[in-house]
Design a protein around this nucleic acid. Structure first.
Lengths: 207, 207
DNA sequence: AAATAGTTTGACCGAACGGTCAGAATGGTG
DNA sequence: CACCATTCTGACCGTTCGGTCAAACTATTT
């Protein structure tokens, strides 16, 4: 085995562990997750697991941090500052697809927030800056008469709520939409309906 | 101590236990909750706790059942079948107030759903009937041209997502809205913004 | 006062928890 | 082959887990 192969094998195992931990934390939260269960999911012995991590809390913090970092890049970071319809449509599109494709990350995150976000708090300041930047853009749309007036922060939370919902309440959504638990939700209809909801609410009578 | 006083004291203690368990389960889920922690929150010794309950799972199921029963009565059970604006406005009003006043129940519920709703599943059939009844009403609004066409089930999930959000993500919402963690969110603005969102989306060009 | 019923608790159980460690296996390098 | 670093694991640590029980305490009844 070459050094590259060994490194790749190691990286692969680390990825397997992260996935196993993500599953366990997303289902049961920090306190409810069991290291034995994570080891079982990763199909390794518990001491082997501890060869690759330092502790339960560190593993939890690492995963949370990587989620926050990743999400920072796909925040409501409006590129098309002058076109509200395009910006909001695009955000809803990528956010719902992200929720359907990464439900574990989403539920991990909401588990943390449900606990009062003790670990997350360190990372919130940067999120707040993203929210405030978006607030400024939304406010400029309002001032320019491009959209009906709304509370920009509340509007962003509504966007978050609707898009995140299909990850957090995946089991319920599948049940109500008659989708088999093993099958995937259809993103197209959810995206379309969400876009309809938010775009018709912002449209001015002039537009 | 009279028999009535004893009964009342007993009922009061049972209520204290339920509240302590609700807090613990809402924060940490079924697996993450500790019976010792529940006893501590209720300020009683652990064997005393077990004098009033049978087991952790039974306590969890009892609380979940009482939540589902209570929510069944305030479901999207449209009284004003002929007035979509009034029906939706009223639903948003009571649902957001309920979320702000009972965040623990809401988070208990979403913790259960995040796990895949293993315990909740028994109760879902009745929820589905409520959803389907509401679907019929919404469809009748569409057929009568009173509202723009939407997918009725998705529309209900969007309503649920936005209203439930302020309980599930209470910590985040307070942070972004600059509300102290100990203070309460202002229901009026959240209700108003939610009503604006959903009512402007359903309004027909004719209306 | 004695008997009875309901309530509370210290001490304890086996199991599972997060985590450790010495040593066995494994693999690349001289 | 010997050597060394990396990877892996059986056995184990102290603690906490959900849960029990006999005994003590309190309150009501006779």
């Amino acid at each position: 085995m070459t050094a590259q192969q060994a490194q790749s094998k190691r990286a692969q195992l680390q990825h397997t562990i992260r996935l196993a931990a993500l599953e366990e934390f997303a289902s049961n939260g920090l306190h409810g997750a069991s290291m034995q269960a994570i080891a079982n999911r990763a199909q390794i012995a518990k001491p082997k697991l501890y060869y690759y991590i330092t502790s339960k809390e560190e593993l939890y913090k690492d995963i949370l941090e990587s989620i926050v970092t990743k999400w920072g890049t796909l925040a409501f970071d409006i590129q098309n500052g002058d076109d509200p319809v395009a910006a909001i449509s695009h955000y809803i599109d990528i956010k719902i697809r992200h929720a359907l494709e990464n439900p574990l990350e989403c539920r991990f995150f909401s588990q943390e927030v449900a606990r009062g976000a003790p670990v997350l708090q360190e990372h919130w300041e940067q999120s707040k800056q993203a929210v405030q930047r978006a607030n400024a853009v939304i406010q400029s749309w309002i001032d320019a008469g491009k959209i009906n007036p709304v509370n920009p922060t509340v509007f962003q939370m509504q966007l978050w709520a609707v898009t995140q919902h299909y990850a957090d309440y995946e089991a319920q959504a599948k049940f109500f939409l008659d989708v088999e638990p093993c099958a995937a939700l259809d993103p197209e209809i959810l995206i379309k309906e969400a876009q309809t909801l938010f775009l018709s609410s912002i449209k001015t009578k002039a537009g």
